[in-house]
Design a protein around this nucleic acid. Structure first.
Lengths: 345, 345
DNA sequence: GTGAAAGCGCTAACAG
DNA sequence: CTGTTAGCGCTTTCAC
């Protein structure tokens, strides 16, 4: 059954035209007679002809494939949506995606850069699990590179990151609008960029409303150990916050996982969410937000949009589309209101 | 700076040998003098030569790229590990992966099959989010196809699926070994294959130990609506179970999300886990198992292994490696013991 | 509008 | 052990 794959030539012979004409039809070259085009298209369909990507790529010396390099994105529930977003954008551009997961290993990363070069990929989206600065291992990569969820401290590459500061602002602002004046914060590890940026957002929102930012109400939910591991301490720190005589009426969480701990701490003290305590999450992970009772109000990390935007920018970087090249894009983090925050009378 | 890419010929000229010799070095053909090889390798390194994948592929008429088609795997926290596993296997085979996410849309799937053909992929791993039967849209696809987390009812393709029955057995067995005799079950939607298979596992374990399987102790945690959506009813059904005068000493959950609800129901009734109630999860999703207090004992869905095994089988299906072709592979679901199940005295 | 010729970068098949 | 020749399937260039 080793049926030879049908080629351009086969189609040409069958259709009684030259290979070049078939090529023109395949590539939507307008310089083909309408009738000829139809006839050829018919033969193509009938013979199930599919253009050989390799041959085409060789001739055109670049591919319609985009490389996606990730440290652990494909690996984590948090950020897979970057991939989906990228895919969605590429589909519209009739391109496809070669995926490389480095697990954070520089050696693997080096290998994959090589591979991307070998494949002559049209560009690379470099995505990270955490929002952080990166220093690319392949400064000599010829094609466009766009960073997703990370950025180049030296600004050597375009990047797309979540607007963490805006997200923090949104968290605080929503609670303030609901009438809360005494707001606790259980944040992510202080070593994370997100923590710093969101902190700035909280402060702006507080200041706007004449609220005093009280550092003693801002406690860590995770602590990064020397060895790089993380300890989830949110239950205890939240408990501390809630045991105060002047306990906050609302708590802003660094992520939804922390919110779970805050719920638990509240339950331990017999406090009800949202009656006695409003809780605001971050990330909007469905698996948590929908599982908690009451369902968690959260600010979403727009991973899909990030992936999507990254490939859009990529096509511009490579000069294949119109518009100015955006060096840094901040994607907004939208508020998703559910039942964990209540209006204070 | 539009520096032309360095080719085999360039390297050959520079090294003073024929192109074919360079080709031999690149491909580790033993028929090359050690000294020549060293010299050529040196030039390759110096000139940053990377073999052109397209040209190579064209000549060899098949690619080193494997296609991964998924409905929503890349999309969900549950099953991304299939991708990681596949990637890990491919890396060892020095291959790479083209990824296609159909979002369950048959039209997209059709498009992507075309694309895989155009790329002359060496084979395709077809992965689904849920363990379920599939009917492939591309019966005429020439290369090997291996199903991951799904299977062909007509047995037309090799498949790799989790051993749900064994997993159910493991859940029940562990509790029985801890001395539990009265075991409740809060399962996934009864329409799911996993539910049926695990049910068989429970029964086997019960029967083995002379335990009576009481249907009234087996309640749904999710209910599938007519429109295909799912309602999480585990909190209420678990409450029902725990309010019985002859309440179970342990509950087996259909997944970790259900376990969260069971914890909540127990808390509502003032029951402590694991002192008053042992809870057994399924899936072993770190984000849940580690967040719950006490941490959840669960049976893992071996997604990584499934992806990994799928590409291993693929290389055999294509006759590129030794060993008999396995038509159906059941990957075991290992028990992960944490603190939510206790020994009954 | 259409076709003929050339060649992209590589490797299979054969010589030497 | 090494080199030569040919050609994979397509697109570019330039004729017609």
């Amino acid at each position: 059954m080793e049926a030879r794959v049908v080629t351009l030539k086969d189609v040409a012979r069958e259709a009684g035209v030259s290979p070049k004409t078939v090529s023109r039809v395949v590539n939507d070259d307008p310089a083909v007679n309408g009738k000829t085009r139809e006839a050829v298209a018919e033969v193509i369909r009938r013979m199930h002809y599919v253009p050989d990507h390799a041959a085409r790529m060789m001739r055109m010396s670049h591919s319609s494939v985009v490389g996606l390099m990730t440290d652990a994105v494909a690996t984590t529930p948090y950020s897979v949506d970057i991939i989906r977003g990228a895919q969605s954008g590429l589909r519209e551009q009739a391109r496809t995606m070669l995926i490389a997961n480095t697990d954070g290993d520089p050696e693997q990363e080096q290998e994959y850069w090589q591979m991307f070069r070998a494949h002559k990929v049209a560009g690379v989206v470099y995505a990270t699990m955490y929002h952080r600065p990166v220093d690319l291992g392949a400064p000599d990569f010829e094609r466009g590179v766009v960073l997703a969820n990370c950025y180049s401290a030296r600004r050597s590459h375009a990047s797309v990151v979540p607007d963490d500061e805006g997200g923090g602002y949104t968290q605080a602002r929503h609670l303030i609008e609901l009438g809360h004046r005494r707001i606790g914060i259980v944040s992510l590890s202080p070593v994370l960029r997100a923590t710093v940026l969101r902190g700035a957002g909280y402060r702006t929102a507080f200041a706007e409303s004449g609220l005093f930012y009280d550092p003693s109400l801002d406690v860590p939910g995770f602590i990064t150990r020397q060895d790089g591991g993380e300890d989830l301490v949110a239950y205890d720190t939240a408990l501390g916050l809630l045991r105060r005589t002047d306990r906050p009426t609302a708590i802003i969480c660094g992520n939804d996982q922390i919110a779970v701990q805050v719920y638990a701490a509240a339950a331990t003290l017999g406090l009800s969410v949202p009656d006695d305590l409003s809780v605001m999450g971050f990330d909007d992970m469905a698996i948590i937000t929908h599982t908690l009772k009451p369902m968690l109000t959260s600010v979403a990390l727009p991973y899909f949009e990030i992936g999507r935007t990254a490939v859009d920018i990529l096509s511009r970087v490579n000069g294949e589309s119109e518009g100015p090249v955006a060096q840094q894009v901040l994607v907004p983090c939208p508020l998703v209101v559910r039942q964990s925050c209540r209006q204070l009378v």
